[in-house]
Design a protein around this nucleic acid. Sequence first.
DNA 1: TTGTATGCGTTATCAT
DNA 2: ATGATAACGCATACAA
Lengths: 329, 329
Amino acid sequence: MATIRDVAKHAGVSVATVSRVINETGYVHEDTRRKVETAIRELHYTPNEVARSLYKRKSRLIGLLLPDITNPFFPELARGVEDEMQANDFRIIFGNSDENRKKEKDYIQTFVQNNVVGVIASTNHPDNDTYRKLDIPVVFLDRTADNRPSVYSDGREGGRIAAQEMLSRGSRKITVIKGPKHIRPAQDRYQGAIDVLSNEGIAFNVIQTSSYSFTEAGTWAKELFEKHPDTDGVIASNDIVATAVLHEALRLGKKVPDDVQIIGFDDIPLSTLLTPSLTTIRQPAYDMGRAAASLLIQLIENENVDNKTIQMPVTFTERDTTRKVEQHG
Amino acid sequence: MATIRDVAKHAGVSVATVSRVINETGYVHEDTRRKVETAIRELHYTPNEVARSLYKRKSRLIGLLLPDITNPFFPELARGVEDEMQANDFRIIFGNSDENRKKEKDYIQTFVQNNVVGVIASTNHPDNDTYRKLDIPVVFLDRTADNRPSVYSDGREGGRIAAQEMLSRGSRKITVIKGPKHIRPAQDRYQGAIDVLSNEGIAFNVIQTSSYSFTEAGTWAKELFEKHPDTDGVIASNDIVATAVLHEALRLGKKVPDDVQIIGFDDIPLSTLLTPSLTTIRQPAYDMGRAAASLLIQLIENENVDNKTIQMPVTFTERDTTRKVEQHG
DNA sequence: TTGTATGCGTTATCAT
DNA sequence: ATGATAACGCATACAA
């Protein structure tokens, strides 16, 4: 690899001059500029980011910490972050936390050791010292904490909508699937749903789950229909679980949505392609990723950011696992 | 952030000594070691990886370039890579190439600028200078090139198996969905399938597609049944497309697998949860990711690697979009 | 067993 | 308009 010294020698100038043309800083004569540029081209020189990073005490790297890229919701987020970062010449160091505090901490530490200029994290413990003591900007994604920069959607509201739509479509023996205890958005959704159900005085059953894993989802779906065979409406903790429930319902010969209605959460790309296609509470994952990246960049560049916590809309996305409600007027 | 100098001062020793205890290199008296360790703890010191990287001209970073993390096959790969790398204290700089050469080149360049010690890439142009001229190890993942380190599965064989199983289950009006022209594994699968079909003298139709995107998949599925309504067997280019085909077939009132059989490719996690669940040619994505990471690490550590190109098995994974074949014996 | 000094490739300050 | 040089934080060769 050619260094700035090689270029300087090759062009017959000093390293300072080369640095000036690279960074377009300070004066440099047109002729020498051209000489330097030629040298750069001939030697295929590209600046060493590590040396830059060391000197400036900041890099063009950001850290992205997501729970599990294997859950189809997160690739959308990640892609949004990446596209926005890429467009602004930032690169991403990526890690999966598995919602595990130790992993989380370890990753944040190595992010810092690598001089990242900011981090985007999807964590259930935003108030932990791991984040509070960081002296680089952090944006929480798909999670939030009072007054800290974050991009998320209102899980509670989503849960409420799900319950309302379920009720207005006639289900009365509702089972709510409660997502993992330690995952914040999962609890919000659950709370929102049971708020509405309780208010309306509707009895409901609950299935407690402990992960979003594909393999376990099927187990919970089975458990659901074994324990509560007369269920006529399922509010799932996310689309993966909803998909498993749909699968199990059909396997048991139930008609969806006639016998059982199902509402999922997230709107992962595959939801449309299920049969019947999945009604769900949509979060605009890709846009959330982009927004988080964009917010982080503003923070990094020290711009005055007026709106540090961005709440994205959750939207009821009606498809075919729920019945049509009659139109009035 | 505390530096090695701060630690040295705080412990009343020189930076060299601190460095020795950190790296467990050279002699250091038990007492001074303890002093240093205490200082490290008290100052919450962690070594600056950037400075290390600059001095040693190598980091603990590797570059991972995947086509599109939004395609459910790739998160599995990525996760495999990440887990193995994480276990060996390497971190990942991640990028999506969109199978686009310019993006690919740009990413590889910034990888190099950041002193990565190796890269894992899923590219259709492994013979490009971008890779040939790299002086760090590269492992190709889900792709291969003669004699270069790679982890992949035999797409052609997969295509053959798909066609054979389709035939042995009685389909005779087969439509093969041909994946994007510029994606190598897609072409391999296609070739494998038509090899068998041609050999057996079976006529078949082809639907040409240009991406693996979720949104377009539905379009091709529609096109398929419009152009070739009498199709009784579909060999899809991957599971996403297969899912769209299944969806469309059911929408048209066809019975699957009685009227139409469908075989996908990849075995993405959702395949099991479709109804009917998807028969597919499985690639062990997670294991491929781990294997690639493991291979790269060996290459980085300069070990003698006997088997540089690892071919993983493709396996016919029979589920419910194909008919059962009778058991003999 | 420990310390001093040098260099990794940049950028920026200060001369010239 | 250009060049010499210090400094970023660390690891190592060499000296002590």
